[in-house]
Design a protein around this nucleic acid. Structure first.
Length: 293
DNA sequence: CGAATGACCTGTGAGC
DNA sequence: TGCTCACAGGTCATTC
């Protein structure tokens, strides 16, 4: 589920019930997720104010007034459910569910936060590929989790010059290179497939062999697909971007490329091709062999 | 060194 | 209905 647009969408939904509020209680329902919780994990958060809720790559970062930052990764199946207490269900421009007594006691509900918004926020993750930890806010970029993470694709720093340098000499397929979090932070399997389609580039093309003049459209396609997804509320609950997929999950279906399509950066003509699925580095890749080369 | 592979978990849907 | 298998949007350690 969660790539950059999904994590950003979760962040936007949590801001009204977390940012500026106190964590009046925190409870863990087990000792670990993908990695063990740090020592006194819940106790170190209880009573602390969340001063800011940020995102870096696919990580959510809740800065606390203690000088520590709660780091949350949703893995493959992690979710943050928000329930508000009392009659009020609307906070800011968001409408949340009312909190039932049982919220947070489900099978894969692992961590429960209470805030004075007032709201209950439940972290649920059935596969447990997610993680939560606490790190020093000041030195977070030097932390093991973040020190090798590349630049944010929606920042100014991500441009043609950067991408050219990042891909230079790489013998790995462009699909794999774009998934590498050390180069670009936050792209995952879906958005890499969709961006390559929009840029008409074959996922099998070797990263270092891509001609210079194809990089500007690729940079544009990456930024555009991420922005489009965030604008649509990403995939899943609030969002509907899954209905805008051009290739992902569409194996055997006709290519959607058509003349002057708003979704397609470079598609000039309607395409009669069929979307194909291949496996690269152990992961599914979807593309149109007819219009991606 | 970079690149490929498998492991970590549980759930779901397809096919028999 | 119930079994088995393939697969799932991410990372990380290990191997070549």
């Amino acid at each position: 589920m969660p790539e950059l647009p999904e994590v950003e969408t979760v962040r936007l939904g949590l801001v009204p019930v977390m940012e500026g509020f106190y964590l009046t209680d925190v409870e863990t329902r087990r000792d670990d997720l993908r990695i063990p919780f740090p020592r006194d994990f819940a106790a170190r958060m209880r009573g602390r104010k969340v001063t800011a809720l940020r995102r870096r790559a696919k990580y959510l970062l809740a800065d606390l007034d203690s000088g520590e930052t709660l780091v949350i990764h949703l893995g493959m199946s992690g979710r943050m459910s928000v329930y508000v207490h009392g009659k009020q269900r609307r906070i800011g421009s968001y409408v949340y569910d009312k909190a039932p007594e049982a919220a947070g006691t489900g099978k894969h509900d692992h961590v429960v936060f209470e805030t004075d918004a007032p709201a209950r926020i439940v972290f649920n993750d059935h596969r447990r590929f997610g993680l939560m930890t606490l790190v020093d806010t000041k030195t977070i970029e030097q932390d093991k989790l973040f020190k090798a993470i590349g630049i944010e694709p929606l920042s100014e720093k991500f441009n043609t010059a950067y991408l050219e340098k990042a891909l230079d000499g790489k013998k790995t397929p462009i699909k794999s290179a774009l998934l590498d979090q050390r180069l670009i932070a936050g792209l995952g399997n879906i958005y890499v497939c969709e961006a390559l389609f929009r840029a008409n580039i074959s996922p099998k093309r070797l990263a270092g062999s891509i001609k210079k003049d194809r990089l500007p459209p690729l940079v544009a396609a990456i930024k555009k697909v991420l922005k489009d997804a965030i604008a649509a509320g990403a995939t899943g609950d609030p969002g509907n971007f899954q209905h805008q997929f051009q290739v992902y999950g569409r194996e055997g279906n006709p290519c959607k490329a058509k003349a002057s399509s708003s979704e397609s950066v470079g598609h000039k003509k309607p395409c009669k091709g069929t979307v194909k699925r291949i496996v690269q580095a152990g992961r599914s890749t979807f593309y149109c062999p007819k219009c991606q080369s």
